[in-house]
Amino acid sequence: MSSSPLTKLQMQGLLARHLCIHIVGAFIVSLGVAALYNFGVAEPRKNAYTDFYRNYDSMKDFEEMRKAGIFQSAK
């Protein structure tokens, strides 16, 4: 029986190598989440506000609220 010596486990630099891999992965995931939030939430919200205020008449809205009796001081 010939026995070959067992190879040593690499322990030196193991933490640094794993941290480097995980930091790069976390950076890529965070960029992906930020892009998804921007295009999935922020842009539609901005477009909705733009569409709402494009035809918004504040005086008409005020008159409707005044007629409904929301304001006590404005008759």
Results as ranks from 00 to 15, higher is better:
residue 15 L to E: 08
residue 47 N to K: 15
residue 21 I to H: 11
residue 58 S to W: 06
residue 60 K to R: 09
residue 51 D to G: 04
residue 57 D to L: 03
residue 54 R to H: 01
residue 62 F to Q: 12
residue 2 S to Y: 13
residue 11 M to K: 11
residue 71 F to W: 12
residue 52 F to G: 00
residue 54 R to I: 00
residue 70 I to M: 14
residue 40 G to T: 13
residue 32 G to V: 05
residue 55 N to W: 06
residue 45 R to P: 00
residue 55 N to E: 10
residue 62 F to H: 13
residue 26 A to N: 09
residue 73 S to I: 14
residue 28 I to K: 05
residue 37 Y to L: 08
residue 15 L to C: 01
residue 20 C to P: 01
residue 66 R to W: 01
residue 75 K to D: 06
residue 71 F to K: 12
residue 64 E to S: 06
residue 4 S to L: 10
residue 43 E to S: 08
residue 12 Q to V: 09
residue 46 K to G: 09
residue 52 F to N: 06
residue 44 P to W: 14
residue 20 C to G: 07
residue 68 A to T: 00
residue 28 I to F: 00
residue 75 K to I: 00
residue 28 I to P: 00
residue 70 I to H: 13
residue 10 Q to K: 13
residue 3 S to D: 12
residue 44 P to H: 13
residue 30 S to F: 11
residue 56 Y to L: 05
residue 36 L to Y: 11
residue 14 L to Q: 09
residue 22 H to A: 00
residue 24 V to A: 05
residue 65 M to A: 15
residue 69 G to W: 04
residue 19 L to H: 05
residue 23 I to W: 02
residue 20 C to I: 01
residue 3 S to V: 05
residue 72 Q to P: 00
residue 64 E to G: 02
residue 9 L to H: 02
residue 63 E to R: 13
residue 62 F to P: 02
residue 26 A to D: 03
residue 1 M to G: 04
residue 69 G to V: 04
residue 73 S to T: 14
residue 29 V to D: 09
residue 20 C to Y: 04
residue 26 A to E: 07
residue 56 Y to M: 03
residue 9 L to D: 12
residue 58 S to A: 12
residue 3 S to Q: 10
residue 2 S to T: 15
residue 54 R to V: 02
residue 70 I to N: 08
residue 7 T to W: 00
residue 40 G to M: 14
residue 63 E to D: 10
residue 35 A to G: 02
residue 71 F to A: 09
